[in-house]
């Protein structure tokens, strides 16, 4: 019996035209074609999708949650990036 596992793939599904692909889970498959077929059977049995992306899990690079505080710090003190930072006179409409 083979000791080798089929590679792991991450599955992304567009639930309807106009929306973006969203991560839904993972599965094992020998190649991309089989991964897409398996994704159809596992994740879209009730018309949950109109388009499927699969990416071999080993190709996904992720940020490190332990660094999150420092990593996102630059955005922390820039409240002027939000429209609520500005006062608009009451008499001004449509802004």
């Amino acid at each position: 019996m083979s000791q080798k596992e089929w590679p792991l793939w991450e599955v992304f599904i567009r639930s309807k035209q106009g929306l973006d692909h969203k991560h839904v889970g993972s599965l094992h498959a020998a190649d991309a074609e089989m991964a897409i077929q398996n994704a159809r059977d596992v994740y879209t049995r009730r018309l949950e999708g109109v388009s499927i992306w699969v990416v071999e899990s080993k190709h996904v690079h992720a940020s490190n949650p332990d660094d999150a505080a420092a990593f996102y710090e630059p955005a922390n003190d820039k409240i002027y990036r939000h429209p609520t930072f500005y006062t608009v006179p009451d008499s001004i409409k449509h802004m």
Binding site: S2, K4, A30, D31
Partner: peptide
């Protein structure tokens, strides 16, 4: 166990492609 040959064949096929 009955599915072992399918798992092996699929890997071999993917490798050949």
């Amino acid at each position: 166990e009955d599915g072992a040959w399918v798992r092996e064949a699929a890997l071999a096929h993917a490798e050949k492609r």
